[in-house]
Amino acid sequence: MCATIGVPQALLYYKYYPQWEAFLKGLGAEIVVSSATTKRTINAGTSLAENELCLPVKVFFGHLVELRNQVDALFVPRVVSVENGAYTCPKFLGLPDLARSIDSSLPSVLDPTFNRRLGRKKFYEALLDFGKHFTNKKYRILRAWMMGLSAQRVFQRKLESGLTPVEAIANAEVQTYKGNLKIGIAGHPYNIYDSYINLNLIKRLREWGVDVATTEMIPQRTLEHEASYLPKRLFWSYEKEVVGSVFHWLRNKSVDGIIYVLSFACGPDSLIQVLLESEAKRRGSLPLMSLVIDEHSGEAGMITRVEAFVDMLRWRKV
């Protein structure tokens, strides 16, 4: 039976942490979350990871290393599919295996499989299998799962009210920023809310008097609906959300401009980047800037570009 479970503050943490927290607590586990990404996290992660991996996965490894001596086991779910007819990025499919392969000194890796494509029965079987690490009582496992789902619904509502995942997890109040400009930030949550790897993008923009909207703040139905304008349905769930948010803003113009944050070695991102840029050009309604981040991101270059983007949007408005 496991007592203390480590949850890395990286990758899907930003998407599902409230659900995982309620679920694991319901199973009777104690949770240790790694601290926010720092330079040390990145150094630890990059020194262990294959060079070809994307930055967010390297960062994830850094978080595993931090948790190494504090927990009995690491929580690394294998998120294969979160909806019918769509998958997640291949790296999520193999994440527990990647985690096991990087360092033999890591504690054991608990990897519940979340795969909606296998149907309800298989899904719940996998869930019960995972629950056995904590309890033999099936009802307790299922109740914990329900608690997770309801925590996730509360979380989702908080995001839609304008909080970032980080703020929502910290139970922050919704603040009204009285900026005279609004920018939509699209991208994977682990890129846009990890303030270390994106050089504090959201905080900086708010300090410059810019209101920020993000992909997560748009309801799921809207994202799905907007993304369905594509002639062929995207088969990556998370990328579909990014595309949905950008299409949403391009159509209703509720923001003055869009910054699309992507990580350098991300396969799916490199494909939707082209899709988004050409669609933005075709519709011609809003300026879109792609901001590529990697572990070598030069602060000077990136800040200059964001600052100039904001200036131009302001200038465009007057």
């Binding site: 800040i303 200059t304 570009r305 600052e307 100039a308 131009m312 200038w315």
Partner: peptide
């Protein structure tokens, strides 16, 4: 103090 892109424009 302003970035060079804005200044040029």
């Amino acid at each position: 103090v302003k970035n060079e892109i804005t200044a040029h424009a």
